[in-house]
């Protein structure tokens, strides 16, 4: 039976032509970490693969982040631009904005968090189901920004853990997108493992 290698010359994954998945005696081929994404793209083309559950789950998680926009200030307006028609974050699967922490897995903290807001943010983080990821968008959420003031929290990592910090005041939509892609990479690599 002819076996055709797919584009990646280093790939050890082969595919049998003219054969439905599961119909032959072979049980599939091992995959290398990180290759799973492209292989699954071929899945509907009449092939099958085996992989680790972790890789598969990470792939699914990283491509369907559901953000909870904790938008407090100017950064939220740039977030609006990012989900808007011009930048269109749905290209990366992160457009399903959920306003209930129970339905979200990505907490996007957009804007200044003041001390009065601290307990609220903590509560929302606690309400999110695992796995949960946090992006601190902008200078204020990262470090308090240029508000070294009596009522401003000097970075949200005072109260909750942060996975990605996005610089800028406010970050451009491209900047925030880059942050989301970086988080995607992190999840893909399996660096973030919580429960």
């Amino acid at each position: 039976m002819p076996i055709e290698k797919i584009d990646n010359p280093n790939s050890i994954i082969g595919r049998k032509l003219n054969q439905l998945p599961g119909s032959g005696p072979e049980k599939g081929i091992q995959t290398l970490p990180g290759e799973s994404e492209r292989d699954i793209a071929d899945f509907a083309g009449g092939s099958y693969l085996t992989t680790t559950v972790d890789t598969m789950v990470n792939w699914a998680r990283s491509n369907s982040l559901w953000p909870f926009p904790f938008g407090t200030a100017c950064c939220a307006i740039e977030f609006m631009s990012m989900v808007g028609s011009h930048y269109d974050v749905s290209r990366f699967g992160a457009e399903v904005v959920r306003f209930s922490p129970r339905q979200a897995d990505l907490l996007l903290v957009e804007g200044t968090i003041v001390d009065k807001m601290g307990p609220v943010l903590k509560k929302i983080y606690d309400q999110m189901p695992e796995p949960r990821y946090v992006i601190a968008m902008g200078a204020c959420a990262t470090s308090g920004g240029f508000y070294r003031a009596y009522h401003v929290m000097q970075g949200i990592d005072e109260i909750i853990p942060v996975d990605i910090w996005v610089p800028g005041c406010p970050p451009t939509p491209d900047g925030l997108m880059y942050g989301i892609l970086k988080l995607k990479e992190k999840i893909d690599r399996g660096e973030i493992r919580r429960s």
């Binding site: 003041v114 807001m117 240029f146 508000y147 003031a149 009596y150």
Partner: peptide, 11 residues
């Protein structure tokens, strides 16, 4: 209100 009191006047 006050959930975004960023102390503009003091700053």
């Amino acid at each position: 209100i006050g959930y975004l009191h960023r102390c503009f006047e003091k700053m």
